[in-house]
C-alpha cells in the first residue's frame, strides 16, 4: 500500500494513539508484528486526534498539496478505492 501510494507521490504517515501505557514500546511492537515500515508518529496523549474531532480508530485523514483536508474516515476497502481514485486522478 505504502509503495503503491508512493508511485502517486502520496505519503502515508501513521499516527499511534490511545495506548495509555508505554506508547512507544506498544507501537514498536505492533509495527514489528505487522511489518509496518515508514513514518510512525506518536500522539501519546491523544491531544492531536482530539483537536481534529476524531473519536475512534482506525481513521484516515487525506490531505492535499495545499494542506487542505480532502477526506476524513476512509477505512473500508471501498472507501479507500473511491477516495483515492478521485484524489490521485491527475486529470481530476
Amino acid at each position: 500500500m505504502r509503495k503503491r501510494a508512493a508511485k502517486f507521490g502520496l505519503e502515508i504517515i501513521m499516527v499511534n494513539v490511545w495506548e495509555h501505557v508505554d506508547p512507544r514500546r506498544e507501537a514498536l511492537h505492533f509495527c514489528k508484528i505487522h511489518n509496518i515500515q515508514g513514518t510512525v508518529l506518536l500522539d501519546e496523549t491523544g491531544e492531536y486526534i482530539t483537536r481534529l474531532g476524531i473519536r475512534g480508530v482506525p481513521h484516515n485523514v487525506v490531505v492535499d498539496k495545499k494542506g487542505i483536508v480532502q477526506a476524513v474516515g476512509v477505512t473500508t476497502p471501498d472507501e479507500v478505492r473511491t477516495t483515492l481514485t478521485k484524489f490521485l486522478n491527475p486529470f481530476g
Binding site: 507521490g9 502520496l10 505519503e11 499516527v15 505492533f30 480508530v57 481513521h59 484516515n60 485523514v61 490531505v63
Partner: peptide, 8 residues
C-alpha cells in the same frame, strides 16, 4: 499529498 492514518 499525504494521509494521516490514526491507529492503536
Amino acid at each position: 499529498k499525504y494521509i494521516l492514518n490514526f491507529f492503536a
